[in-house]
Design a binder for these strands. Sequence first.
DNA 1: TCTTGACCTCAAGCCGGCTTGAGGTGGCAA
DNA 2: TTGCCACCTCAAGCCGGCTTGAGGTCAAGA
Lengths: 133, 133
Amino acid sequence: MRDLDISEVAKRSGVPASTLRYYEERGLIAAIGRRGLRRLFDPGVLERLDLIALGRAAGFPLDDIVPMVRPDAAPHIDRAKLLDKADELDRMIRRLGMLRDGLRHAAACPEPDQLQCPKFRRILRINARRRTA
Amino acid sequence: MRDLDISEVAKRSGVPASTLRYYEERGLIAAIGRRGLRRLFDPGVLERLDLIALGRAAGFPLDDIVPMVRPDAAPHIDRAKLLDKADELDRMIRRLGMLRDGLRHAAACPEPDQLQCPKFRRILRINARRRTA
DNA sequence: TCTTGACCTCAAGCCGGCTTGAGGTGGCAA
DNA sequence: TTGCCACCTCAAGCCGGCTTGAGGTCAAGA
């Protein structure tokens, strides 16, 4: 598999060409060269894009992803940062679970006004403490 | 408990006054009236703000939260929609759980280059399919 | 050789979710 | 009664992450 045209990368990765150019500008990926004006990419860029997508899905800002995918080195990932992010995801997952339970309960609850339901109110208060306290 | 001034609401809820005005403009909360120019809020707004915070924390855009907290029509909450949301949350939770496991594994994996780790690659590919397929 | 259109650059725009700032009003303590 | 200042409105700005558009170049097929 040889060098890829930007449109080829876009097609295979699902990432629009405009985004690829943007990522290059941000230092997330690099073209290995040009044919005339046109960028040529190594197929390895596809894996980097998967990694970038994973990072984005996990909620990392692009700036945080740069050091993980630096095109000039083997991907180096800060393990401590990963663990922090994993913990953050755990907290997020618990909150989502609470919200899901809250919605399900609200849907099932016979109270005409769900805000009056004690179970629902409890869920709300637990979440609220994160800001207020 | 009497009607609350905007600064009182801000203090009790932890939500800045500017955000409260913004939320009112977006239809997320409503003042019960004015004293002169000044908004007066029913203490119940604090609970709605908790609900909004829960939704925000769960990653919902404000537009999605509006129907959940409508200051009018408490009895007309669309229960089917709530259940749909709950299912959506379940899917999101599973996905985030995968990501969390992926991050933890990447942090623990002895491979010098995480991209070579088969487990990590599998997670990468699964995540990638959501865009590519 | 010529034409075409896929690629290029650079600047500006968009969206969500707020914040900030300028300029105005009026409730309340003195 | 006066004066302060917390509140008001409206418009603009900011940030991250892209997209869009105008105007230019050039590799490759006819």
